[in-house]
């Protein structure tokens, strides 16, 4: 059994009951005979940041998808953002592959999501500027570099102001400036009272940005 608790300590000295933003209880997931997650228990409260590490195929990405409510589990209980009316809309997922429409420009990819969420277009421009994408924002996604595509994915997560931010290998293939963008995204989410989960192969990265690390 794997059990981890992770609170951000944002109570500010006020005695209160902490309602976890994410609570996994004895979660098991199998695809046929392939056991992917085995009895995982995890609790993550506001301001918390937990890292997930493990070898290839150990179920790191699947665990993120479970926390994103995108992957049903075989057994166990998953509670995500229980106080939110529509929890999915408060989740930001940045996968290791950018979720971009190749035939839209980088700006249009952001504008599309912004329009669906009724986010003002000035926020799109502000986010593009903050992530250093403004000069290339009119470039089609299929003509943008991998680094720019990942930046756009991060920009979109930033634009959506999620309460729960799930990052899958967020630092892979990024230059120093983009690494700073990821760091800011994590810090801002935690400062707003959100929680962050970071999946990485690199123990040094997890030690730097997370409070606690679980191994799968």
């Amino acid at each position: 059994m794997l059990a981890v608790g992770c609170d951000g300590g944002h109570a500010g000295g006020i005695l209160r009951l902490v309602q976890p933003l994410v609570q996994l209880d004895n979660v098991t997931l199998a695809f046929g005979a392939n056991q992917v997650l085995d009895d995982v228990t995890l609790s993550l409260s506001d301001g918390g940041c937990v890292g997930v590490q493990g070898p290839n195929g150990s179920g790191k990405t699947t665990l993120l998808r479970v926390m994103a409510t995108l992957q049903p589990v075989t057994a166990g209980l998953v509670t995500v953002l229980p106080l939110e009316e529509n929890p999915r809309q408060e989740i930001g997922l940045v996968g290791h592959r950018a979720a971009l429409n190749d035939l839209l420009t980088l700006r249009e990819n952001l504008e599309f999501i912004a329009a669906l969420r009724a986010i003002p277009s000035r926020d799109v421009e502000r986010t593009l500027a903050a992530t250093g994408l403004s000069p290339v924002a009119s470039r089609r996604a299929d003509r943008a570099s991998q680094g720019m595509r990942r930046r756009t994915d991060l920009a979109r997560a930033s634009l959506m102001n999620p309460k729960l931010l799930l990052l899958d290998e967020p630092y892979n293939g990024l230059d120093d400036a983009a690494i700073g963008i990821v760091d800011r995204l994590i810090t801002n989410t935690r400062d707003r009272g959100g929680a962050v989960v970071v999946v990485s192969h690199d123990p040094a990265v997890l030690a730097r940005v997370t409070q606690r690390v679980i191994s799968l």
């Binding site: 998808r65 994103a68 995108l70 529509n86 999915r88 809309q89 989740i91 930001g92 997922l93 996968g95 592959r97 950018a98 979720a99 971009l100 429409n101 999501i113 669906l116 969420r117 959506m160």
Partner: peptide, 15 residues
Amino acid sequence: QSSPQERDLMRLTLS
């Protein structure tokens, strides 16, 4: 057609 990543994004975006 959407990639799996785009489909996930839509699931997290649409009310």
